[in-house]
Design a protein around this nucleic acid. Sequence first.
RNA 1: GCAGCUGUAGCUCAACUGGAUAGAGUAUUUGGCUACGAACCAAAAGGUUGCAGGUUCAAAUCCUGUCAGCUGCACCA
Length: 569
Amino acid sequence: MEELKKIVASSIGIALSNEMDCNEILDKIEVPKDKINGDFAYPCFHLAKIMRNSPANIASELKEKITLANNIKRVEAVNGYLNFYMDNANLTSETLAKIMNEKEMYGSSDIGNGQNIVIDYSSPNIAKPFHLGHFRNTVLGSAMYRLYQELGYHMIGINYLGDWGRQFGLLIEGYNRYKEEYDIEKDPLNALSDIYVRINTLAKEDETVMDAAREQFKRLEQGDTELLKKWEYFREISLKEYNRIYEILGCHFDSYNGEAFYNDKMEEVIDILIKKNVLIDSQGAKVVEVGNNMPPCIVLKSNGSTIYATRDLAAILYRARTYDFTKAIYVTGSEQILHFRQVFEVAKNLVDEKYQKGLVHIPYGMIRLKTGKMSTREGNIVYINDLINDAIYKSKAIIVQKNAQIENVEKLAKQVGVGALVFNYLKSNKLKDIIFDLDETLRFDGETGPYVQYTYVRIRSLLEKANFDENNKEIKFEQLANEAEINLIKELAQFETIILKAANEYEPSILTRYIIDIATLFSRFYNECQVLNCEDENLKLARCALSYCTGIVIKKGLAILGIECPDRM
RNA sequence: GCAGCUGUAGCUCAACUGGAUAGAGUAUUUGGCUACGAACCAAAAGGUUGCAGGUUCAAAUCCUGUCAGCUGCACCA
């Protein structure tokens, strides 16, 4: 596509007797929303002043000067636009041949050149169950991980566990008091979080309980072996639960270094900041001024202890040294926007410019309930275990109803149900808040995961019946000439561009919507064009190839989002 | 009070970063299975892009003001 665009640009350049820079022209060229207006369009409005003529006149004058060659089939001047109609035969054969040739590699590139990108995502707090907020984070981060991987970057996924802090004193204290009442091994996270909630309320009423908890954490910090063992135990059983979910979501981490890991790495940060003379006293605390209308960043509390910003700074320093990253991406809720702006500003004192420029915060909107915000106190948290179970249960019912003979229902129901969830959460702009609605989340018709999976299943079924040989090199792609076919092929040609765009904008929803478009265009084609019953053997083969290529793109696109594609459903 | 995000069809969301008649899904009404899988396709209807100004040949998009919702603003993460 880009090649064609350049051809168009240079032909305009020649028609303008090279008065305009070719890149400038290239920049102005757009793809019309409505296909009636051609494959490319050049708006002539900005030329009006320079050439002292009306845009409409300029367009029609230019039209006469354009030579029809190099795939340019027709040029029209409409409403001050110069519309280009390209010869589709080349585009279709080139695109489909490329996909048939590259197969699963189609869409990948190596522009990342193996450079390292660290991405910090999911990062739950130990001993608390996974809820919807974590889910959105995990799914988003995981998609970004794979998007950049597709571009040839070497990814390092970091699960920055919330595994340190005063709450562990409370947890230990609560555990000592209540452990007999729970079957912790059976349901660790719910048991531990229940214990935590109980001890927390108790501590608010009773100061001696809080003191006991403080004492516990102090001993933990000092390296009390027994307490460390307990801490490790909490961490382990929590992680085991999280990993179960990560496996379902198909996401991957290369490091589980949490807050505790940076405990002994903060001193150096303080030293550097002191040496750079940027650490100043303010109301008893030590802060760094960050300007830009922002409040200062607290690095040491007035009691001398460190704070989350200190830990994030230590992490930046460590990650720069350990991974030599090109980008360090942080996926967190939008409520932390200010925090990261401050931290990134302070980090300018710690690392080289290369790393400073690589720091990226990806914020996402909140998930709330119709009744308001989720909160443990209100007891209205949506746990991801429950949601996944609901989704699987529902998809199983539908699968059985549609297709009673099908095998492997359990696995299928998981693929479809979880796919629906993930798809739903990657469908819209990440910054938008989501009002959680169970019925809406588990919808299977229209622009949903199951719709796209279903499209793929039909393709598989079709190809199986046709006995299609995916290595056939004798396919006559130029047979594909009707509108439904051409529209689909043009969209397939965009795959690489879409992946690049989704990665650059840190916006997986761009890819999600693209996959919907592909599925819709295929369904239209499938409805209008006969494949198996097609009398012309060459056309039949070409249509099979088109279906095959569509399947490749759908499957790969979904895989990047973290969604599996069943062969039957 | 200051700062950030969001505001588009009844509902959920798009709109190639300033371009042509603002598009999808859903819900509603309707047509299409003795038919390559109907979890599908097609059609109708649905809009003063929160509001008011401004810049521009051209504004949902940029600027100013304003309203509403959310978030953050010092020792929680």
